[in-house]
Simulated assay, not measured.
Amino acid sequence: MATTKRSTLITPAIPEDITKDELSLVRSYLLLTFIHKVFERDCRVIGKSGLFKTPQLYMELVSSATKKTSLMLQEVTRELASHHLKITTIRQDQRGVEAQYSCRGYVGEINIPWPGFRNEMMLRMRAYLGLNPELTVLPKEDSVEQMAMSI
């Protein structure tokens, strides 16, 4: 579960509090940013590895998912702008992902622990690849823990 922390005001007027929908946009932006980078990296690795008989097939699959995430990221970025919501800082550490944002004069942060972030990433990645969310090759714990996280 993500946590939020309220901080200082930028303007003397009392701003509207950030809504659940707006927090969801921040969360989606973070997830899509990480997923997009993972797909881009995986596509490069598949192409350069020399381990696949038909790397172009796998690259096409991952590339298609990369394009989907790119389009979704553009849409989420437009939505963030329409809500006057700006993500100012993204950090990650051993606990999870943290983003600071400003929204209509309100400054806050969202913290998402790694287990939940990784699980949601895997579910979304499976959907973008056109895979069944219930089927996995590795046990859930193994497949989630093996994913490298960095942006």
Rank of each mutant, 00 (worst) to 15 (best):
L71R: 11
Q94S: 15
Y106H: 10
A148C: 05
A13K: 12
L131N: 04
V38N: 10
A148R: 11
A13P: 01
S102M: 12
H83K: 15
E145Q: 15
L51I: 09
L85R: 04
Q146K: 13
R41L: 12
E75V: 03
E75I: 02
H84F: 11
I46S: 01
L30R: 00
S143M: 12
I87V: 15
K53I: 13
R6G: 08
N132F: 05
S28V: 00
L30M: 08
I90T: 12
M149H: 04
E16A: 08
E79I: 01
M121S: 12
E98I: 03
M1G: 14
V62R: 04
D17L: 12
L80M: 11
E109D: 14
L25K: 01
S7N: 08
S24I: 07
L9E: 07
T33P: 00
Q100I: 08
I90M: 11
S64T: 09
L32F: 08
V76F: 02
M72L: 15
A65F: 08
M72H: 13
A99V: 09
K86S: 13
D93V: 04
I35G: 03
T3V: 10
T69E: 09
L73Q: 11
L123Q: 11
L25G: 04
S82I: 07
S82W: 03
G47N: 07
S24V: 03
D142A: 13
I151D: 12
I112W: 12
M1N: 11
L32W: 00
M59N: 02
G105Y: 05
L71I: 05
D142R: 14
T11S: 10
P139M: 05
R104D: 12
N119R: 13
H83R: 15
A13V: 14
G105H: 03
S70Y: 11
S143Q: 12
L30S: 07
K86L: 11
K53L: 13
T54D: 11
P133C: 02
A13C: 07
I151H: 06
K140I: 12
L80H: 10
N132W: 05
T3G: 15
A99Q: 01
S28P: 00
L32H: 09
S102N: 03
S102G: 03
R27W: 06
L57Q: 09
T69K: 04
K68P: 02
T77S: 14
M149R: 01
I14N: 08
E141I: 08
R41Y: 11
I46H: 05
T88D: 15
P12M: 07
I87E: 08
Y29E: 03
V107Y: 01
K20M: 10
R126F: 10
R124P: 00
A13D: 14
E145D: 15
I90P: 02
M149P: 00
C43G: 02
N132Q: 07
I112E: 09
L32G: 01
R44F: 05
H84N: 15
L135D: 06
T69I: 06
Q56H: 09
E134K: 14
P133K: 09
L61W: 12
Q146E: 13
D21S: 09
E134H: 13
E145W: 07
L9Y: 13
M125Y: 00
I14H: 06
L73E: 06
T88G: 09
K67M: 06
T89G: 01
L23E: 14
M1L: 13
Q92V: 01
Y29L: 06
M1A: 14
L23T: 05
G47R: 03
L80P: 08
L51S: 09
S102I: 12
R104F: 05
A99P: 05
R41W: 02
I35P: 05
T69C: 15
